[in-house]
Write a protein that binds this DNA or RNA. Structure first.
Length: 434
DNA sequence: TTTTGAGTTGTTCGA
DNA sequence: GTCGAACAACTCAAA
């Protein structure tokens, strides 16, 4: 018996049919393409919230792809389980020439893909990876001696030098939709099958207005204003194309483009230095004696520190799965500097709560705030919650929105005095580094 | 090899 | 209220 020869496209963090590099390459090959998605139990098992909004979002997007493909007489095959085990099954069931996929730069993903590649190799199946998640990959922006940058500004300069027009051009995967395998449509694995429920948290739309780009530089730091793009989750799961966004940023807003370069900077750091997941980038900070007071950590998590701007941020996070970027810096500085709590605690809490959670950016941001990261800024840059409020929320609009009780008697007293905490932090770091 | 300039996002103090 | 300097000195990148 002979099963028909096919190609497979494996969707992961690229949940869109348009302008998808790996999918485009697959559809341009000379065989029908079977699209596949795996709900990875290794990842799902770590989700504490059984109605996790990110999983709901992914599920919705995979279902939308399935619906679109249904109109073409095709569909997406979905699975639930350990990817390597599932690939063994898929490779048994089908006669495959090539597996097409887009590269993922996280340590777990890299290892997973290597394992699957090995299984494919043993079967004589080709395994082709493409660049889709970033404009320039970790190995494409290096110093002249071939080593990676560890300071942002020279990295960004080099990034812009290396950038070509081609890097920003969309790939027309939609032109080749007739090349999908024709099959009777199969349903997407239900959330309940995996032990989850649908979340009712709303995800912001994946659109970017020109008006936002034009005013981005002046508006992005004010948390009471909707001046940021809210595209994080869409970039995370690939429901928008980075090429499309970067192309428009390049024309309209250097500040916004810079933020995209930060995203690639931290992806590059994570790729070259995967140890940062659990360790200080700068080893000399390993001796900082974090206080790690559980009660204070809990107060921070719950938005009960007695510092309105900090509490507003944490309450926004807890209620919506989102926190404005300016406020992320403030609460991170407060946790690590004022409370002297290990940045890894804060990072883990963000990972659990943020809809737009992205390992590379979250880790980079937290290490930056703690002073342990790639940025050589001195440790005595300690955010003052009050002056940050004066600068970025002068009318207290953001605070009033999230902490309406901030002037009431029952509102918590400051968990620690600012001046005292600042001096304690300076002393602690100074001592640790000496 | 040596030198030079620079480093996301800050705060406080004193003139 | 505004401004510049000090904070403390280090590492990185590139010439």
């Amino acid at each position: 018996m002979s099963k028909p020869l096919l190609n497979i496209f494996w969707f992961r963090r690229d949940l869109r049919l348009e302008d998808n590099r790996g999918l485009y390459e697959a559809l341009n090959d000379d065989l029908p393409v079977l699209p596949v998605f795996i709900f990875d139990s290794n990842i799902l098992d770590d989700l504490e919230d059984k109605s996790d909004a990110r999983l709901s979002f992914i599920h919705k997007e995979v279902t939308a792809i399935n619906e679109t493909l249904k109109e073409k007489g095709s569909g997406i095959r979905t699975f639930y389980g350990n990817p390597t085990e599932i690939w063994k099954k898929i490779l048994e069931e089908h006669n495959i020439k090539t597996i097409f996929l887009n590269r993922d730069y996280e340590p777990y993903a890299t290892k997973r893909d290597e394992e699957v590649k090995k299984i494919a190799d043993e079967k004589g199946v080709e395994f082709k990876l493409f660049k889709d998640h970033v404009i320039l990959e970790p190995h494409e922006v290096l110093k002249d001696d071939g080593s990676p940058y560890v300071v942002f500004t020279p990295f960004s300069k080099r990034w812009k030098e290396e950038l070509t027009e081609e890097d920003l051009i969309s790939v027309p995967s939609a032109l080749y939709f007739t090349n999908f395998v024709q099959m009777s449509n199969t349903p997407v694995t239900a959330l309940s099958t995996m032990g989850f429920q649908t979340s009712d948290i709303e995800i912001p739309s994946g659109t970017l207005e020109d008006a936002l780009l034009e005013k981005y530089a002046e508006r992005r730091d004010h948390p009471a204003i909707e001046g940021t793009s809210r595209l994080g989750i869409h970039l995370r799961f690939g429901t928008i194309s980075i090429r499309n966004i970067a192309q428009r940023a390049e024309k309209k807003s250097g500040t916004f483009l810079n933020e995209l370069i930060w995203r690639e900077f931290y992806q590059m750091i994570l790729w070259h230095f995967p140890r940062v997941v659990n360790e200080n980038f700068k080893k000399q900070y390993n001796s900082v004696p974090w206080r790690n007071d559980l009660n204070e950590f809990q107060a921070w998590c719950e938005g009960k520190t007695g510092y309105p701007i900090v509490d507003a941020g944490m309450r926004q996070l807890n209620e919506t799965g989102y926190m404005h970027n300016r406020v992320r810096m403030i609460v991170a500085s407060f946790l690590t500097k004022h409370l002297l709590i290990d940045w890894r605690w804060g990072e883990a809490y963000f990972a659990k709560k943020l809809l737009d959670y992205e390992l590379a950016s979250n880790n980079g941001g937290w290490q930056w705030a703690a002073g342990t990261g790639t940025d050589a800024q001195p440790y005595f840059r300690i955010f003052n919650p009050e002056s940050q409020t004066r600068k970025f929320d002068p009318e207290l609009k953001y605070i009033k929105r999230w902490v309406p009780d901030f002037q009431e008697l029952a509102y918590p007293k400051p968990v620690v005095d600012h001046k005292y905490a600042r001096e304690r932090c300076l002393e602690t770091f100074k001592e640790a580094l000496s």
